[in-house]
Design a protein around this nucleic acid. Structure first.
Lengths: 215, 215
DNA sequence: CCCCGAATGTGATCGAGGTCACAGACCGGG
DNA sequence: CCCGGTCTGTGACCTCGATCACATTCGGGG
């Protein structure tokens, strides 16, 4: 079962569907697959139907930092920028889960922008949100300490039950720091009674106080 | 002389000009004027005809960090994101020089997006470039030391003659650090023979080696 | 030519976070 | 139930950058 029905992609209008029918190809990838790496050129844009993709920068020393995630109905803004502006990727894209979508080339993207209001608005919407988020991220990285950023990330990741299923290593990679640093900060949060640290998961005990720390 | 002719704004098509004629108002501001601050709502978008605007984040402790500059023919992507997505500004916009442009409201922006291909493409283009730049900035702030960032900034600011007209304080604010740090780093670059530091200006002596440091 | 504000130089100190080097602890599979 | 890989805890150490507190120095306007 290789095909990805165009109907699976939310937020498209008739014009977009017609064009995709004619000029897109199904794309699937398993969790963990690297979709693109720094330095590569972008040949095609994927409209995501299901799954989640993480886009992260890499440092020379091997650390990483999560920039944003791409969700169903969205496209990767970096891919878009690289494809349209003929730029090189400066980040890495990794499938967080199994992923399905439809891939389109540069000319099709441009045509879609012209003929499909829904597609156009979606792109602009996603770009705007990402710009907003990226600026927030810059602010965090430049001016906020790790403890506060960790608190924020825990809140983002927590399920309804207040449980975060992540290892210290994963959190470190999300925040662009080292595992030891996360371990120590978590320990501190635990001493403060804000969380409980277990193997592979963190239970949030005091969401309110944690949220307060995050700002 | 208060008016700003629409002809002064580059990159518009007939449809855009017609709409602007009917639904935009002239906007002027002197160098140093603060156009928006964190926490404010965005009521209108300015299409820049001349001058330059700096957009920067502010930290609690009073430091700042330059996010990007808006130039003639462009719009501020943060303003756009805030206006369209009804979000609050998270940064500050300051006129770097005297500035002239035309201001439009939310509904006009949306209409322009719909009726003017040139405007639409311009927006998308600017958004894409900014996203690319912002990701680069995140990478720098997260993973590169001040010395390398300073080297990069000096190269950006240098004129044909290799002279940068900035005070240490200004450079510090561009890079999101403290003045003393810049002074010391500059001193080091001077010891290495890469630049000469004078009052209010820096002369680049070894562009190649400086560029090398910047990466 | 003097004076004041802006710009710069510098030492001392401090804290956050990065890095290294391990030691345990835990867990699922064989 | 044992073993190896993953995950976590921790001490030691170092570096960069932030901050404070000044001393200078420069340059232009009155």
């Amino acid at each position: 079962m290789d095909d990805v029905p165009i109907e699976d992609i939310p937020g498209l209008d008739a014009a977009a569907k017609a064009l995709l029918q004619a000029a897109s190809s199904p794309a699937r990838a398993a969790a963990g697959t690297v979709l693109f790496r720094p330095g590569e050129t972008c040949e095609r844009l994927v409209l995501l139907a299901e799954g989640r993709v993480q886009v992260k920068t890499l440092s020379e020393s091997g650390r990483e930092l999560l920039l944003y995630q791409v969700r169903p109905g969205e496209t990767c803004v970096l891919s878009f920028a690289c494809l349209v502006g003929r730029r090189l990727y400066q980040a890495e894209g990794v499938c967080e889960t199994d992923v399905a979508g439809r891939a389109i080339g540069r000319s099709t993207v441009l045509e879609l922008m012209a003929v499909s209001p829904a597609f156009r608005e979606r792109i602009i919407d996603v770009q705007s949100s990402r710009i907003y988020e990226l600026i927030g991220l810059i602010d965090e990285v430049a001016f906020h300490r790790t403890e506060s950023r960790l608190a924020g990330r825990l809140i983002e990741l927590a399920g309804e039950d207040g449980v975060v299923h992540s290892t210290h290593q994963q959190l470190a990679q999300d925040l662009g720091t080292a595992r030891e640093v996360i371990s120590r900060r978590l320990k501190r949060l635990e001493l403060l009674g804000l969380v409980e640290v277990e193997r592979g998961r963190i239970v949030i005990r005091e969401p309110a106080r944690l949220r307060h720390l995050a700002m």
